[in-house]
Amino acid sequence: MGMTGETFPAITTRKDAVVAWGQKNSLWPMPFGTACCAIEFMGVAASVFDIARFGAELVRFSPRQSDLLLVAGTVTFKQAPILKQIYEQMCEPKWVISMGVCASSGGFYNNYCTVQGIDQIIPVDVYISGCPPRPEAILQAVLKLQHKIENPNTTPPAQFKVKEPTFDY
């Protein structure tokens, strides 16, 4: 986007850029909070960390009104059909943040009742590590998602690129 001059009161841009700009700054999250991470998400929404600074404060508890599914907490096999249904109820475009290790990989609950990562059920855009993640990490995930919305076809910027750890078994 750029100003074309003071005499002509208009700007030129691309349509998808404007849409993406609007989408990224007005994410409506639906917190699918099940466990400890949900308590930490409440902390992010409260005044000290204030997710409103990033335009994502309008928490909707109806999947039909929201475009960001924030899966906060452990998802068990009993919960899995519900999570899938809620994801399917959301309208396109929609994004998913997997908050905390339980949602991302099952965490230290490697047992008979815990889904080993919600990506077995629904697609995930951003994963957050931590058990539970710090509020700053959630804010960073929102920023990262905003970057992804703005640049749908590009790889993440350098600051998010981590060298793949190599394990020598």
Binding site: K78, P81, Y112
Partner: peptide, 18 residues
Amino acid sequence: HPLRKDYPITRRQWLSAN
């Protein structure tokens, strides 16, 4: 019954519908 000692801890069972 998962807490029986002969139930392996990682035997997972998916649920189709609630």
